[in-house]
Nucleic acid binder design. Structure first.
Lengths: 415, 415
DNA sequence: CAGTATTTTTTCGAGGCTCGAAAAAATAGA
DNA sequence: TCTATTTTTTCGAGCCTCGAAAAAATACTG
């Protein structure tokens, strides 16, 4: 059962709320914060004065343009970029990238590397991640003491405690506790997140009007992934990152999937599946390890040109996605969908069959109202989500801590 | 964004927590409550003394048997049965029942009625519900002023605000705002809930060890329904009661479902589907309106006796349920499952194919650890859940109200 | 049976927090 | 320069929770 509210929780929670209001609004005045949080002006005044003194917020002569109004002008509050920094590490197929982000959310440094993740050993994989983080931390421009959090996103399944990668299509290795490893190595709290979940987090920040409380982000790539936000909360499984939309069953006993099972949505809609069908190979043909973006673009071009096996392959992908979404909508009610990843550029080929399939399912009654948006470039999205995730942690756990963490390293250096 | 915590919320929340602790534990002492809530002894003392004075809790010389210990004996706190009462109304196929439950959770009166729901008009349906409630409220043994809530459970889809039935298999009528109707008629707050969700609520109260934070209740009946608890919360759709497990797609374009679509899980696992397959009718055959329990028992008996079409029908039901659960487990991770309803008595016929199917899905890696429990009698479960739902409302909204509701009718009569 | 040990519950003062009202600050218009 | 207006801070009041100590209620002990 949930625990009672202690007296000191009050301040902590309201501090967190003020910080979060500032992060959302950018440069709100105290009055605006009072309005959005529902707290009184006096309380906001007290809390924000604390936060400014601690170096977490700064005053900035806000909205000079809007000072057409009479009366004392509003003073904008903004996040102090120097209050902390976080690292966002993204590990995907044959690619590793890291970005340093200041407390206000600006990227201050980054580095990218090509790897051969499929053939690397466990230790090589770990070493590369540790090394790229170390290089960033050794950057003389960066105050290492200010780095408060490392967030690592990976394609694949992570555990629900955000500690480890359990399984990933980018490597044959399994169960690597990246978060624990980085934490031990650098003494900085780390979390391990699923890439699609981070896409969803980023979409929420990018377009809060469209992606508010309930929406779905689907990654159309070599595999099929999903990030799901329900009732304003990232939806995760109880043991793992969950939301393995790509491995819902489309046709029992059907096409061979990369996961070794049969009939998964991915076995019809993943790049390898589209490629396999376009070449008219058997459904039992072993999934290929990778199909280049260029090759997929060529497939899509041919599909647009002539009504051949390529077009049929995309049609089947749409059908699988449609029935999958239909089953999903039976469980959670329809919501806006973002199609992310290289194959989202071919969504025109996928959409007709997808809509036709949804119309045959329980979600069909709403099928007109279901809207799709496409975003071909997943990497920036994942990195952005990762950064926001890490920053939210700093907001809540470090700058609005429970009694035990009152004197953290980070706070000291700012004061 | 969530709202700030005002100062007066504190007491309210902690009051609610104390009440809920008492409801869960039965007869806890103040010391026990302090332990489970994490609040100090002084706080618990203050709050419970308030609650006793207001007639919500009563002291009861607790645990006379356990008074073997030294020291001042613990005084048990329990819910005052007279503090309030709620009505639990359950409307299912051809059947209407109502129960009056006191604040401590004991049934004090009940009434049941057979109807012909499939042929009744909208007004007849509403009138029957209003009439049965009125008869209970006119009972001279009942203090009407103490009735604080009416909860109505129905098979079918309800809206997410718990106001209306949107669609139900028990009647051709749609969109009946039962909650609003009852509320207007009697001036008592009412809610409209989905039957399977109430099953899940009841299971949590009955066996909190097994059904704690994550579990699934599946109704195997004429149709297939589901109640889902995730992270300790009842899972509902954003617009409707959600969790329409029975209408996930098992085989695209497959057997004809009662909902008019094709290939739903229910079209293989609902009573009418089993009956249809056992008779070796076409998958396109119109679903029959009802199959009697006796007939289903006869089918099951034949299936156990000889390896004929009956056994095959149950096998197909198991397969559909298995693939459906497998897809569900891809999204939410495996969890304990309760199979409820008359067909749960035939679960021995269903289970082998079900497990075999799950093993072929993403949930398969855990298939050994997935445990099923059966409960053939859904009605008591639904009523129990309904009652607990209504009582929880009274606990939280009436006895631990926000500033506006401080002087409710109910409170006055108790004081 | 009186005295002691033990456990539960209440009492009481201290310390925090939020709130509303009033004051102070900062600007635009007259 | 003065006034109106809006934002922000200040200040006292009112709650709430907490810890420590006191009070209450029982079992053990000789």
């Amino acid at each position: 059962m949930s625990v009672g509210i202690r007296h000191d929780d009050l301040r902590r929670r309201n501090r967190a709320m003020v910080i979060s209001a500032v992060r959302r609004a950018g440069q709100p005045s105290r009055t605006e914060i009072a309005a959005t949080t529902g707290l009184s002006h006096s309380t906001i005044s007290a809390i924000s004065s604390d936060l400014i003194q601690e170096g977490i917020l700064t005053e900035s002569k806000a909205s000079e343009t809007v000072s057409l109004k009479r009366g004392r002008p509003q003073v904008g509050l903004s996040l102090n970029p120097e209050a902390a920094a976080v690292l966002a590490v993204v590990l995907s197929l044959n690619f590793l990238s890291v970005a340093v982000i200041d407390y206000a959310g600006q990227v201050v440094a980054e580095e990218q590397r090509r790897l051969d993740t499929l053939t690397m050993s466990r230790d090589e994989l770990i070493d590369e991640c540790v090394a790229i983080v170390r290089r960033r931390l050794e950057d003389p421009d960066l105050d290492v003491r200010s780095v408060a959090r490392i967030a690592l996103a990976i394609q694949g399944i992570t555990d629900s405690h955000a500690r480890a990668m359990l399984w990933s299509p980018i490597t044959p290795q399994t169960n690597i506790a990246f978060a624990d490893i980085l934490e031990r190595e650098f003494g900085i709290p780390a979390i391990m997140e699923n890439d699609c979940n981070m896409m969803a987090v980023a979409l929420r920040w990018r377009d809060p009007d469209r992606y508010r409380d309930d929406f779905i982000a689907i990654l159309l790539s070599h595999g099929i992934g999903m990030g799901l936000v329900l009732k304003g909360e990232l939806f995760t499984g109880t043991h793992s990152s969950g939301g393995e939309f790509g491995h819902m069953i489309h046709r029992p006993g059907g096409a061979l999937c990369r996961c070794g099972r049969r009939g998964c949505v991915e076995a019809y809609a993943g790049n390898y599946a589209i490629w396999r069908n376009a070449r008219q190979l058997s459904e039992n043909a072993e999934p290929v390890a990778d199909v280049s973006d260029a090759e997929m673009r060529a497939l899509a071009a041919r599909a647009r040109q002539t009504d051949g096996p390529e077009r049929e392959a995309y049609r089947r992908a749409g059908e699988a996605l449609g029935f999958g979404l239909g089953s999903l909508f039976a469980l959670i009610d329809p919501a806006p969908v973002a199609m992310v990843g290289a194959s989202a550029a071919a969504f025109d080929l996928i959409e007709p069959a997808l809509r036709e399939a949804i119309a045959q399912t329980a979600g069909g009654q709403y099928s007109g109202s279901i809207s799709f948006d496409t975003e071909p470039n997943e990497l920036p999205l994942i990195r952005e989500g990762c950064a926001m995730r890490a920053l939210s942690f700093v907001d809540q756990e470090i700058f609005a801590p429970g009694a035990q963490g009152k004197s953290s390293t980070v706070r000291k250096h700012v004061a």
